[in-house]
């Protein structure tokens, strides 16, 4: 078990154009950043909300996870190359060819610890948290600032294609962060990531053992049928509905956990799926 000491939410449901983040970032941080793209702005905003008011140890590790990373810049570079027959700008290459977002967050927050950019096709949040949990429990890290960042991309058809979601899925963007430690002192909540990838019957066995007071949240990848089956296991289980506050992006589970922390007390069991297997995360907030 590890502990959440701070969290930050930046969650948006854009309609036609992505909101301008420059002004948001300037207002939040009081700084003007040049040569950074929107994905990096998004990353800094979320990390700032989680950690700027917290006295961070410079050795704090930074784990940034994302479904797709900096797609708009990648698409722009390809467009320049194939349609406009232009060279891309060196700044675009730099922002693409490195974990630039992590670099700028580290600069912003004065960090010089481990700095990772991670991804996973189905469980980007859970896998990054699993690494954080291992590193904290082994005392390889004392504090991990972990965030999930996904940017809304104006080409919605292409976005849906890349994400493998159906045409009716509304897409959003977010930058949601947690400050994690092994120590419970001063913590907001506990967090447990179950490392096993479960089949449905094992998942049901686990959920059936969960107490009535624990709320259940489900990722977008679970079908209504499966959700109904799980909710039907016990009549006293209640659902935590975060979905009305957001549209789809791949690191949404972090938003779900953080929203729970911002609004509720007690425990939350979050269930995610890759279509075949399931992962469980459990957050416990003292009443």
């Amino acid at each position: 078990m590890i502990y959440i000491h701070a969290f930050g939410i930046h969650n948006v449901k854009p309609e036609k154009n992505p909101p301008d983040l420059k002004a948001v970032l300037r207002t939040l941080s009081g700084k003007v950043y040049r040569r950074i793209d929107r994905f990096i702005q998004l990353a800094i905003i979320g990390a700032h909300k989680a950690a700027a008011s917290y006295e961070l140890d410079p050795e704090t590790a930074l784990y940034l996870t994302s479904g797709q990373g900096d797609i708009p810049v990648f698409a722009r570079v390809r467009q320049q190359r194939y349609l406009q027959k232009m060279m891309s700008k060196p700044v675009d290459f730099v922002n693409l060819a490195s974990n630039a977002a992590g670099f700028y967050i580290a600069s912003h927050l004065g960090l010089n610890g481990t700095n990772l950019f991670l991804s996973h096709n189905d469980f980007p949040v859970q896998m990054a948290l699993l690494l954080a949990q291992s590193d904290l429990e082994l005392q390889k890290q004392s504090t991990v600032l972990l965030g999930g960042v996904d940017e809304w991309f104006a080409d919605q058809e292409l976005s849906r294609k890349i994400l493998g979601v159906n045409e009716s899925t509304k897409l959003g963007e977010g930058s949601n962060w947690m400050l994690l430690k092994r120590d419970s002192e001063g913590a907001i909540a506990s967090l447990t990531i179950e490392p096993e990838l479960l089949d449905l019957s094992t998942l049901k066995e686990r959920v059936a053992l969960v107490g009535a007071a624990v709320r259940l949240a489900f990722s977008e990848s679970l079908t209504a049928t499966v959700i109904n089956e799980i909710m039907g296991l016990r009549a006293d289980h209640k659902r935590f509905n975060y979905e009305k506050f957001c549209a789809y992006y791949e690191t949404l589970p972090l938003f779900a956990l953080n929203l729970f922390l911002s609004r509720e007390s007690g425990e939350l069991l979050h269930i995610d799926s890759d279509g075949e297997r399931y992962m469980i995360m459990r957050v416990g907030r003292p009443d």
Binding site: N99, G102, S119, H120, L130, L131, P195
Partner: peptide, 8 residues
């Protein structure tokens, strides 16, 4: 578990 790392 699995993880992809992009740190240049």
């Amino acid at each position: 578990p699995s993880l992809t790392y992009n740190t240049a």
